[in-house]
């Protein structure tokens, strides 16, 4: 329980409690601090508005020197989210820095929802619709937002 990773996670959790960022929230599972559940509310003025998207964050003992694996549990129709929920985000892969904490990760995912990058698509149909038929894209996203209520 006293490994640097765990200490750091405790600190992250404390910070998250003290200074919770807008529209995101997360907490470790009851029995394992290395696995977290998180929630991102869809950002305003985007088709994701009103959506509540659940995620799991799995940390390793190498954290914060290695990034955690973040995955959407809810179904999300987004150009940078794979079908299995995996997220194509640079800071979660090769651009990771130990200065990031859980709130930073969650806020950056939230910003990714509002500003997708269709040039490196993980969901090609979503990227195509985002580029070519924004109205259809928004319709699909709204459907997925409504799906998030049911989950």
């Amino acid at each position: 329980m006293s490994t640097p990773a765990r200490r750091r996670l405790m600190r992250d959790f404390k910070r998250l409690q003290e200074d919770p960022p807008t529209g995101v929230s997360g907490a470790p599972t009851d029995n394992n601090i290395m696995i977290w559940n998180a929630v991102i509310f869809g950002p305003h003025d985007t088709p994701f508005e009103d959506g509540t998207f659940k995620l799991t964050i799995e940390f390793t003992e190498e954290y914060p020197n290695k990034p955690p694996t973040v995955r959407f549990v809810s179904k999300v129709f987004h150009p940078n989210v794979y079908a299995d929920g995996g997220i194509c985000l640079d800071i979660l892969q090769n651009r990771w820095s130990p200065t990031y904490d859980v709130s930073a990760i969650l806020t950056s995912i939230q910003s990714l929802l509002s500003d997708p990058n269709p040039n490196s698509p993980a969901n090609s149909t979503a990227a195509q619709l985002y580029k070519e038929n924004r109205r259809e894209y928004e319709k699909r996203v709204k459907a997925c937002v409504e799906q998030s209520f049911i989950d």
């Binding site: 998250l16 003290e18 807008t22 529209g23 929230s25």
Partner: peptide
């Protein structure tokens, strides 16, 4: 949402 910091998962779920 901001003010209420989440301490446990249940709380989070409740908030959600």
């Amino acid at each position: 949402h901001l003010i209420g910091p989440v301490s446990t998962l249940e709380e989070m779920d409740i908030k959600v």
